[in-house]
Amino acid sequence: MALPLPPGLTPPEVAFLCEMELVTVIPRQRLDGLELLGGPTPPLTPPLRANLPLWLALLLKRQRRCNILAPPWLHPASLTSILETETEHSKAAFSPAPKLPPKSLSSSSQLTLSPPFLPSSTADSRADALPFHWMEMGELLLSGAADDIADADLVRRLLRDLREVRMAKVRAGVEVLDAGGGVQMNGVGGMEVAEGRAFIGGVVDGLRRIGASREQVKREREAEERERGLANTADDDYDAMDL
């Protein structure tokens, strides 16, 4: 029995993962720290900024208990410059993901943080790069906290433009695909992966099926060569096996 859902994540699932990202809020009310499964939240004291998970921030925002500080990359100016990079400077590649912070020597813990666990949408994140969850974060903030975003309509339009430009690139990547090869997907966001997965997977599958016979021939030839090579260098191989 086939699973009703296609492989990979559906858009609501990607958005759910995005809600774990930290955002910066300015609380309007005092709130003690909460012991959540994802770790304790900082206590909220009105004029001081704090980082909360997106879902909690949106909940408090809906109850008018806080304001959300939009991440720097969600400002119209940074989005415009990113869009320009996408369309003018790197026509083939995606704009790069935010750089990893330099590894601090003091925290010698064995935990190395990588993108999903790095705050990429807080107030002190970088303004010139789109994080992994850019599309989901942008849409969620625009729908839940539009009044906290400078020039929300322009931001909405820029996000739409970015999405179009980048999806066109994902599709153009299909032309350079190969049965065994890959396509450069650095900097592609979570929602874009979810959207492109079914199609790109289908194309690779089709190419593999067409090239299957050639692949078979190649494999046979390689096996043959390996056998011949084995016969020639039998002694060396026995040595290697002893090791």
Partner: peptide
């Protein structure tokens, strides 16, 4: 269908 469905889902 796959391409259409995934863009529709988003």
């Amino acid at each position: 269908r796959a391409a259409h469905d995934s863009s529709k889902a988003v």
